[in-house]
Design a protein around this nucleic acid. Structure first.
Length: 470
RNA sequence: GACCCCAUCGUCUAGCCAGGUCAGGACGUCACCCUUUCAAGGUGAAGACACGGGUUCGAAUCCCGUUGGGGUCACCA
């Protein structure tokens, strides 16, 4: 049997981080078994579905590298098939028309709650003579669900879950206007798409009971279920807008590499022993529904950040340059010149070692690309007081003598000067850093010197020294 | 309220199913080392089996209960 999984978002918002993980698990499972991973857009709520949201979801999946097989299925396009199934059920006596008014339903629900019953609809029209039907009311179609016994879902994550059938009432299949409900559509689509494994958030666990009732009524094979725990916010409550960034696009905008987000998400709720850092190719080789935890996990930005830093450090310079260049151009309000780009690439080894995110990286790389004279930030300016400038002058003299300009040769020159002057290297290096970068924090100062080159380096130093002279 | 699910360091988790480990790792935190700043790296530290009963020679592991958390209860998806 070929494994077929699906991700079925409704396009009412952006690709939520929890949805992204659900998609990832489905993708991983399908890839692990050489199966197919399908995408279905559940756009039957026309009022809330938007084209922009659909596109955002597709973009999000694309960014994460979760390629789906074939064309996306649009649930709204399949309404006729859904109603046909409902008619089937009706003809077979497995469903019936219900003429209750919304008011009656509300009263029923309240009464049921009051007596602590789980069955919210009392089955009024279940066995009532259709001849009693009021002429002016268009009915809904309800499933004739079993009254007693139990329904069992053997969930790959949650284990065997049993619910008494008296807790399950006769759900609506077709609304009064004849449109199918979600509960019907999902089942029909999953069946028609030959889905073998339904991996989704455990907020759907109770739906699984109702849905398996529809499968049975139709005589269809029930697919395997795997209900994965939801992701919670740092406060332990369901992840929501209150917790800040929601869509994967927000994490992309924060400068987290896609592989860091995938790695983090994969590790959230799923484990392969003590493995923490792994590629999706590795995860594909390891993934199993059995290894998904049963308890909800909290979203931890600190850990994502640490993964992000790891992947940035590991990234090849040319690829990294390509992703940060637009960010830098944005900050510079113009495209990079060849010189700026060359400095950026040369400076990347020292820069990426320190970056937590791509945004971070762009900010810290800025000084390489800024034209002279540099503006020093407050802390750097403080280092460039009279005493600092004296040290800077010392360094300038030493550097001016350097012929073969490299990180090593400039270091040798500055160290020699420091020794001769009886100064600790740091006393000279910090003013130098302030002059060269405009900041107190940067990659190794000799690396900076090497990247900048002699004329630019001396120029930046002179910008500071001359300013005082004047 | 009813039904369902869950419960190991602050967080993510390994270990649980097939009882016997100093309960392991990672992130974070702290200290030290390295050091031209900041990172990275290295070393080390603090830090958990929710509680109560069983079963057993022995329980994080099996059973029951309590407490706590979460989810679902629509002619939404």
């Amino acid at each position: 049997m070929t494994v077929v999984t699906r991700f079925a978002p409704s396009p009412t918002g952006f690709l939520h981080i929890g949805g992204a993980r659900t998609a990832l698990f489905n993708w991983l499972y399908a890839r692990r078994h050489g199966g197919r991973f399908l995408l279905r857009i559940e756009d039957t709520d026309r009022a809330r579905s938007t084209e922009a949201a659909k596109q955002a979801i597709l973009d999000g999946l694309d960014w994460l590298g979760l390629e789906w097989d074939g064309e996306p299925v649009y649930q709204s396009a399949r309404a006729e098939r859904h109603t046909a199934v409902a008619r089937n059920l009706l003809d077979a006596g497995n469903a019936y028309r219900c003429y209750c008014s919304p008011e009656e339903l509300v009263a029923m629900r309240e009464a049921a709650r009051k007596r602590g019953s789980g069955r919210l609809y009392d089955g009024t029209w279940r066995d009532r003579d259709p001849a009693d039907a009021p002429k002016d009311v268009s009915p809904v179609v309800r499933l004739k669900a079993p009254l007693d016994g139990v329904t069992v879902v053997d969930d790959a994550v949650q284990g065997r879950v049993t619910v008494r059938n008296d807790q399950l009432d006769d759900m609506v299949l077709l609304r009064a206007d004849g449109t199918p409900t979600y509960m019907l559509s999902v089942v029909v689509d999953d069946h028609d798409m030959d889905i073998t494994h339904i991996v989704r958030g455990d907020d759907h666990l109770t739906n699984a009971f109702r849905q398996s009732l529809i499968y049975r009524a139709m005589g269809w094979a029930v697919p395997a279920f795997a209900h994965i725990p939801l992701i919670h916010g740092p406060d332990g409550a369901k992840l929501s807008k209150r917790h800040g960034a929601l869509g994967v696009d927000a994490y992309r905008d924060m400068g987290f590499p896609a592989e860091a987000v995938c790695n983090y998400l994969a590790r959230l709720g799923w484990s392969h022993g003590d493995d923490e850092i792994f590629s999706m190719a590795q995860a594909t080789g390891w993934f199993d529904l059995e290894d998904i935890g049963k308890s909800p996990a909290r979203f931890d930005l600190a850990k994502l950040t640490s993964l992000s830093a790891h992947y940035i450090r590991a990234m090849a310079d040319d690829r990294l340059a390509g992703t940060v260049e637009p960010l830098i151009a944005g900050r510079l309000a113009g495209p990079l010149t060849d010189t700026q780009r060359a400095r950026l690439i040369a400076g990347l080894p020292g820069l990426k070692e320190r970056a937590k995110s791509l945004v971070d990286l762009a900010d810290s790389a800025l000084f390489y690309c800024r034209p002279r004279p540099l503006e020093a930030d407050a802390k750097a300016a403080k280092l460039l007081d009279d005493s600092g400038k004296a040290k800077l002058a010392l360094a300038r003299n030493a550097l001016a003598e350097v012929e073969e300009w490299t990180a090593d040769s400039t270091e040798a020159a500055v160290r020699a000067t420091a020794d001769a002057a009886g100064e600790k290297l740091g006393r000279i290096a910090q003013p130098l850093r302030a002059a060269l970068t405009g900041r107190t924090v940067s990659p190794g100062i000799f690396e900076v010197l090497g990247v900048l080159g002699k004329p630019e380096s001396l120029g930046r130093i002179d910008d500071i020294l001359d300013r005082t002279a004047a």
